[in-house]
Design a protein around this nucleic acid. Sequence first.
DNA 1: AAAAATAGGTAATTTAGTTATCTATATTGA
DNA 2: TCAATATAGATAACTAAATTACCTATTTTT
Lengths: 172, 172
Amino acid sequence: MTQKSPPVSVSRPELLDGDGRDQVFRALVYDLLSVGARMQEVRDNLAKIIGVTGPQYAILMAVAHMQNDVGGAGVRAVARRLHVSGPFITTQVNLLVKADLVGKFPNPEDGRGVILRLTDLGEARLAAIEPEIKIANDTFFGPLSATEFHALADLAARLEKSSELAVRPATD
Amino acid sequence: MTQKSPPVSVSRPELLDGDGRDQVFRALVYDLLSVGARMQEVRDNLAKIIGVTGPQYAILMAVAHMQNDVGGAGVRAVARRLHVSGPFITTQVNLLVKADLVGKFPNPEDGRGVILRLTDLGEARLAAIEPEIKIANDTFFGPLSATEFHALADLAARLEKSSELAVRPATD
DNA sequence: AAAAATAGGTAATTTAGTTATCTATATTGA
DNA sequence: TCAATATAGATAACTAAATTACCTATTTTT
C-alpha cells in the first residue's frame, strides 16, 4: 500500500529539514498558531476581570496607547491597528462609551473624525488589573532570556512585514 | 496637565527596555498578533481556491497530517490540535464529508470513536494547491535565513509551552 | 457490575465580525 | 473656485465561527 504524503508546505531550502521534509516548518506554524490562540485566551481572561469582552479589551488597550500619539485614536486608526473593520470598532466603542470606559470627542482638526480617549473610570479599570497583566505576560514569556527576547522581537518585526506580502495573493 | 501612562504590561527586567518602559515588549505583542492574523488570512485565501472555508481548510490539513499517526485522526484529537471544541469539528467534518473531501470510518479499536481520512478527492485538492501553499509560505517567511528559521522554531516551541501556563489564570 | 470517564453527535444560542449603504466633511485638480 | 473624489464614521442587515448544554454509546475503573 502506497502511503500518500501530504503536500510539502514550503520550498525554500532554508525552511526545509535536511531530508527535504517540512517537519520543522510545520511545527513552527503549529506553534505560532497556538501561541496566537493563547494570547487571545489570556486576553479574554483579563477582559472578564474588568467586565468587557476580549475584543473590547483589545480596543481599550489600543486606545490607551494611541491616545497620546499624534493624531490621537480615531475609529479607523484603531480598526487598522487591530486588523478589523471600521464598523466593528464603531459598535464596540459605543458599548464602551455606554459603560463609561471610553469617551468620544470631535476631532478639532477634522470635522469628520472623532477622538477616542479613556475616561477616568477606563484608566482606573486598566490600572486595577496591571498586576494580573504583568503576571500573565511574565509567565507567557517566562522562558526567554533578555537576549532571546530581543532576538524574538526582531524576528517578529521582520515577519510582520513579510507576512503582509504573503497576504495579497495566498499558509498552513 | 498630568499625562496618564497606560499600564506597563510586564515586570520581568529581561522583557523591559533599559528605561523600565515596555515599548519593545508591546511591539512584540503587536507583531505576534499581526502575524497570527495574517496566517489566518493566507489560510482563508488557500481555502477559497479549493472551495472550503478557512476553518475547514485547517481541518483538512490537520487530518492530512494526523491520519498516518498512531491512533489516527479522531474528532477530539483534531479539536485539540486546532484549539476548538469537539462539536465544531463534528459539524465541519460533516460538511467536508458531504463535499467528499473527508471520509469517516469506525475506529476498530474503540467503538465510540471515528477515524477521519482524506478521500482521494481530498488528497487531490490539497495536492493541486501545493504550488500556491509553497509560494505563500516562502513569501511569508521570506526574510529568514536557515539559522534564523531554526532560532525562531526553537523560540516558538518554548513559547508554546510557557503560554499554556499563562492561560490558566490571565496578555496584552 | 456499577460508577465514572470518554468519544462523538445534535440543538440552540452567542459573539465577532463582515459588506453595503448612507451622510458629512476634506482634499484634489481641472 | 468648484466639481469630483476620497475619507471618517454610523447604521442596518447579515453571516460565519464558534460555544455551551445535553444526549447516547461505549470504554475504563474500582
